[in-house]
Structure formats: C-alpha cells, structure tokens
Design a protein around this nucleic acid. Structure first.
Lengths: 216, 216
DNA sequence: ACCTGAACACCGTTCAAGT
DNA sequence: ACCTGAACACCGTTCAAGT
C-alpha cells in the first residue's frame, strides 16, 4: 500500500482513504477482527457495498492501513537516559496494542507503514546513541520489538479465555494433569499472571543484557 | 478443544480426528492458511463437504489442533547447562515455526494444547532448576517465549515480501525517505538481516540479563 | 455411530453502468 | 472522478436424511 499514493480530489469528497481507515479502526475496536467486512465497513460509512474499492485495492490494504494508523498513538518519550527512553517507548507501544486487541493478529504482515517506521526509527536511533552498531544493533532492535509484540500477543490470546468458565476449566485441566506438568501446575501457569510486572521484568532482563554488551 | 475427548470407535474408521489434523497440517504447509477451507480439507480427505463436523466442532478447533500438533516436532534438548538447554529449546522451537509459516498467525489463540504445554513445562522447569522462582520465573518464562514467537512472526512477515520486486520497492522507499528515517536507512533496515544471527544474539541478551539476576 | 447433500446466511472482488 | 448494484465464485455451519 505504502507505495501507492492516496487519490487526490478537487473538492472535499464524502469518502476518502482517511475516513475508511478511521472507520475500520472504529469497527475493529468495537466488534473485533472477525466482524470487519468490506460490506459492513461500507455500510458503516454510508456507502454502497463495493464503493471502497475505488479508494483501496483490497481488504488487506485496509488492514495494513488500520494497523499503521494505531501506531501513531505510540508516544515518543523524551527521557535523556537510553534505558528510560526504551522502557517508555516499549511500554507505550504495548499499551496501544492492548487497547486495540485485533492488532496483534495483523503482525504477520510486513510492518512498513510510515507510523510504524517512525517508531522503529526512534527505537534504533536510541540504541545507536547508546553505542550499538552492526549486528548487535540489529539484534537489539528486533529483540525489543519481539518482547513488545510477544507480550501483546500472549496477553491478547489469554483474554480470549476471559469467559470465566473457560478459564476455570483450563486451570482445572492443568491441575488434573499435574504429574505431566508439575512445574506449570505449581507456578499457577494458567492463572492470570501480573502481565505488567512480567513485561517490565522481561524488558529489564533484555536491557541488562544489552548494557552488559555495551560495557565490554 | 483440549477438554473434549476425541470420539472413540469400535472399528478402525475412515475418518478420525488424527487424520483430520494431519490433513490440515499438510494443506497448511503446502498451500497456506488462506487456502485451508473446511470444504477443501474434507475433499483432501476424501470425505463429503460437511463430514468433518462430526469429529470437530468448528474450524477453529481444527486450527488449534494443527498448531499444537507441530509443537510435537520441537526437540527437548538434554544438555546439562541451563543456558544451553534454553538456547537449544528456543532454537528448535523457532525452527519449527519457520518450517510451518502459518503457525505464527495462529498464536493469538490460547496455547493450551498438550504438546505446547509440554514445551512450556520444559522451559519453566529449566528456569526453576537454574534458580528462578516467583515473579522472576514468570517473567523469564514469558520473555523467552516472546523472543521465539516475535522472531518467527517477524521473519515470516518479512518473507511475505519475498517477491523480489516488492522487496526492492520497499528498500527504495526507505532510501527515498532517508531524511525521515536516517537510522533505518543507514542500517539497511529493510534489507534482509541475518535472521539466525539476530535471533541468537537477542536470546543471549536475554539470558545474560537472567544470569545477572541469578547472580545477585 | 458415522456420513451425506441441500440449504442458509454470509463473504471478497469484478465490472458494466450510472452521475 | 466517483459511486452503484448485480453477479460470480466462494465461505462456515446446520440439519434432516441416509446407512
């Protein structure tokens, strides 16, 4: 999508790519990915069932645009210390993905949107300023992104069980098979962990490791 | 699914849950997630278009079963050193996901299958043996899983561009916008990185960080 | 107990036709 | 330039009916 410019208009039109993207995000937030349909989106925008195809090539385009759109919400922190900058960026990034739970499932598509690239640029520039380069820089950039994406994915997935009965059944299942999964049963693996705490600690492991490599 | 037992039979039947899962994995491997259809899967198995519904409740059940199935391929290493055990587990896990590129997109569903739980049990037991417990144990377990899942997701996504023209266009796009993304343009962000190297280094950052916390 | 086909209520996308 | 509706080739799932 990113390579094809949005159409330009002579006068303010009723339907634009921006309005389509905003409508898609609204529908995804309120009803989830399974309910986002080109027909329903068009109806939501007060257009005929196939009008969207003038502004957008496929449904995948709409999804790519919607995913990039929410990245604009991720704040770019201004802390001086590189560790603080990275923690703040990662925390804000995760918060945005949890606020738009449909976003995790879309990350199998290449992340090339302008807002995504702006965040990645900020992330990598901070690591460069901290002193990384070459293969270490690449690895650190991806590792931090993986932590955010993985955390958002795991927490989103866990919420699919939010149905209390299903959660209870899953925990019971683990207890019934305690001899097969002794460690998991003992640590309460299928009970909701403190996601915020686990995320922050995991990120600290990563940043500690990066700091170690910077010190040598 | 995991709580509902597979049906039992008096005689060897033509269609079983196992055959359905094996057929689904085969179709997903050869044609991708978009092409897996209940109708096509049934046809692939030589059954009527709706026969699957006797053995399985929904298409989501089939996907959950297929995802768990491939986790059986992840080897459980027997190294003595905890770091070696974790590296070997994570590396094997990533390799399996890359071999079945459709698997990354399915991780938005809760990972409760028996094979998944066996790998998670092994991962967490290794961390316990290394000396972790409580909130640190939870955080380390998830952080390692996030690294594997995030890496598989990113590499799979990047391969969607495998089309050489698209890759070239994306790199060109980044170069054209070098003033907006100077760090990314300089580091060649959109050119294929050495995925194996980035994965190994990132995992080392994480394990270094965990080792630091064990030492204090 | 297991399998089938018809049927229902949807999809994404194309395209000739309208304004 | 922009929007429309009919139409095509599909979906997942239900259910009465077969063996």
């Amino acid at each position: 999508v990113w390579l094809r410019p949005a159409r330009t208009y002579r006068t303010a039109p009723p339907l634009t790519r921006d309005r389509i993207v905003a409508g898609a995000v609204a529908l995804l937030d309120s009803e989830g990915a399974a309910k986002l349909t080109m027909r329903r989106l068009a109806e939501h925008l007060g257009a005929g069932p196939t009008t969207l195809y003038w502004h957008v090539r496929t449904k995948d385009d709409v999804l790519d645009l919607a995913l990039d759109e929410i990245f604009a919400e991720v704040p770019l922190p201004d802390a001086a210390d590189w560790r603080e900058r990275l923690s703040a960026l990662a925390t804000g990034w995760r918060a945005v993905m949890l606020r738009h739970p449909w976003s995790a499932a879309l990350l199998v598509r290449p992340m090339l949107g302008p807002h995504v690239l702006t965040r990645t640029e900020f992330l990598q520039a901070t690591l460069v300023a901290a002193g990384l380069n070459g293969a270490e820089l690449t690895a650190a950039t991806y590792a931090i992104a993986h932590h955010v994406v993985g955390a958002a994915l795991a927490e989103t997935a866990s919420r699919q069980l939010a149905d209390a009965a299903a959660e209870h059944a899953a925990a019971q299942y683990l207890r019934d098979n305690a001899e097969a999964y002794p460690t998991l049963a003992a640590s309460g693996h299928l009970e909701e962990p403190d996601w915020d705490d686990a995320f922050a600690r995991g990120l600290d492991y990563l940043l500690d490791g990066i700091a170690v490599s910077l010190a040598t």
